[in-house]
């Protein structure tokens, strides 16, 4: 016999104070994303460890002091840090059940992420064309592009995730089914910024110091 599914509990008249954790699905997503990020921490630590071990193995190629420019890195840091704040704004409006403002701030978050990615693509292109510094140049090159590129890949994935969420839920309005989805993305996005804080400190700033 076919079962009749009743989803009315997902569309309450009054939204609960924490719509992202009001359902079992929401609680599971919250648990799941933190579990995933715990693993991601170890993965990025491995890449950082490899970078620290190989950063001076330049094989006669350009060193980190010659390559890095602080100006562009500072702009990228500001873009990503601001996008972290705009996604906090988005979650603030989600908890106030304001769908439109949440969408607006999530949209701004995505645009700032794209800005960051554009800077990174420019940066890599600059290293490759002006310095001939590639993934294959040296152990330093491999470790650098693996670490920073992997982070950039996470930003790209985040932008694709956000775009999909925004398109798929555009006509649905906020409910207990999609609130956890937006919140899960937001936590992921903050984590990407945490990783970037360590990249600009350990790779770029310490790279300038030597």
């Amino acid at each position: 016999m076919a079962q009749v599914h009743d989803h009315s509990e997902l569309f309450p008249e009054v939204m609960p104070p924490e719509p992202e954790k009001a359902t079992l699905e929401g609680k599971n997503k919250f648990f799941g994303i933190w579990f995933f990020l715990g693993g991601e921490t170890v993965l990025f630590a491995s890449l950082f460890g490899v970078y620290l071990a190989l950063k001076n193995s330049t094989a006669g190629g350009p060193s980190s002091q010659e390559l890095f420019g602080l100006g562009l890195v500072f702009i990228m840091t500001m873009l990503l840090l601001t996008s972290s704040l705009t996604s906090v704004y988005a979650m603030y409006h989600m908890r106030n059940n304001d769908f439109k403002k949440m969408y607006l701030w999530l949209g701004i978050t995505g645009l700032l992420g794209i800005g960051f990615l554009a800077c990174e693509i420019y940066e890599f292109a600059h290293y490759i064309t002006d310095y001939g510094f590639t993934f294959r140049s040296s152990a330093f090159g491999s470790a650098f592009y693996a670490l920073v590129g992997f982070h950039g890949g996470h930003v790209l994935f985040g932008i694709c995730w956000l775009t999909t969420l925004l398109i798929r839920n555009a006509k649905r309005g906020l409910n207990l089914y999609n609130a956890p989805k937006f919140n899960t993305f937001s936590i992921y996005w903050h984590f990407i910024d945490v990783v970037w804080v360590f990249i600009f400190s350990v790779v770029y700033l310490m790279g300038k110091v030597g």
Partner: peptide, 27 residues
């Protein structure tokens, strides 16, 4: 109600610390 989340991320941070320490020490 975020105790479990904190446990997971600090577990990750602990393993990350061991990974980093190991790689730095051997190099």
């Amino acid at each position: 109600g975020t105790g479990m989340a904190a446990l997971l991320i600090y577990g990750g941070v602990w393993a990350a610390f061991l990974t980093l320490a190991g790689l730095i020490v051997i190099s």
